[in-house]
Structure formats: C-alpha cells, structure tokens
Simulated scan of single mutants.
Amino acid sequence: PMDPLAREVLKKHHITAHKHRARQVDRKMLHDAELILSMENEQLQNILKLAPEVRGKTFLIGKWQHELEIDDPYRRPKLAFEQTFEHLSRCVDDWLPYLQSGVIR
C-alpha cells in the first residue's frame, strides 16, 4: 500500500490515489509502456539493465529541469514528501508539451 504520508500529501492537493498499488517492474511492463519515467539515474540504469531495448522511451522525469534527480522520500519526514510532490509536479508540467505533441527527444 501507499505510504500514509504520501497519501496525506496527495489528499492535501486534492489528488485521490485509491487505486494505487506498488509492484516490481518487469520486462513485460516495460515493453507495454509508451514512456518510462524514473526519478533517479540509478532507477533508470536498473531499467536499462533489465530491458536495454527500451532505451529510446526511458528518461528521467526531471529531464527538462537539467536532468534533475528526485530522491525517494520513503521513510523520511512529511516535509520530504511535500518537497517530492512539488518537484514531481513541476516535472510533470514540463513534460506536458512533449506528451501532448507526441514528440520526445
């Protein structure tokens, strides 16, 4: 299940996550995805080790913010979850023009 602090932060921002469930990434999931975004370079490298052929659709979510890496707030105070939410929100906003145009470079 989702970390209770993460759920609190999402609720504060009027985002429901009732269908969320954590799961380990696998090759089928990677192949089925149109776009794969990771928060950290280490995650990105692990994805590419598992399925090197997905390189062309795998990026840091912070790509448009000078390859910003976003630390996982797991087991950290609520402030860390708030900061992560803010970082991710900005990164998603930066991705929107590319997602809407269908062109990613």
Rank of each mutant, 00 (worst) to 15 (best):
K28D: 14
T84I: 00
L50D: 06
R23P: 00
Q100S: 02
Q83D: 09
I104P: 02
W95S: 05
M29D: 06
D26Y: 06
N41Q: 13
L44C: 01
A51E: 15
D26R: 08
R27I: 15
S89I: 01
E40R: 14
L96V: 14
K78W: 02
G62P: 00
E69K: 11
V103I: 13
K78T: 06
P77R: 05
A17T: 05
I70K: 09
T58Y: 06
D3C: 13
E82H: 00
D71N: 10
R23V: 04
K57F: 03
S101Q: 09
W64G: 07
A22M: 12
D32C: 09
R55M: 08
I15L: 15
R21L: 06
F85K: 01
H14R: 13
V92D: 00
A6C: 04
D94L: 15
L10W: 10
W95T: 10
F59E: 10
N41M: 08
M29L: 15
H13R: 14
D94V: 01
H13E: 14
E69Y: 08
Y98A: 13
L68Q: 14
E86N: 06
R7V: 15
T84W: 01
R76S: 13
D72H: 02
Q45C: 02
K12M: 13
A33Y: 01
P97G: 05
L10T: 07
R55Q: 12
A17M: 10
K19A: 11
R21W: 08
V92Q: 00
R90T: 00
E8S: 14
N41W: 05
R23T: 05
L96G: 00
P1L: 07
C91G: 05
K28R: 15
Y74S: 11
P73G: 07
K28T: 13
Q43E: 14
R23D: 04
T58F: 03
S38K: 04
L44S: 02
K11R: 14
K12S: 08
R27P: 04
L48A: 12
S38P: 03
K63N: 02
A51K: 03
Y98W: 04
A22Y: 02
E69D: 12
L48C: 12
I36P: 03
T58P: 08
E69M: 13
W64H: 15
K19L: 14
V103M: 07
I15R: 12
R75Y: 01
Q65M: 10
H13L: 10
Q100A: 08
V25T: 14
R27Y: 01
L30T: 09
A6Y: 02
L96Y: 01
R90A: 06
E42N: 08
D93P: 04
H20S: 14
L79D: 06
L79I: 12
R7F: 01
F81G: 09
C91E: 01
S38M: 09
K78P: 03
L35N: 12
E53M: 11
I15C: 10
R105L: 10
K78I: 15
R75V: 01
E82Y: 00
W64K: 12
I104S: 06
S89M: 07
D71M: 08
V25Q: 04
V25S: 07
V92F: 01
L96C: 09
E34F: 04
H20C: 09
Y98I: 00
T84E: 05
P97L: 09
E42D: 07
L37R: 11
K11G: 07
A80T: 02
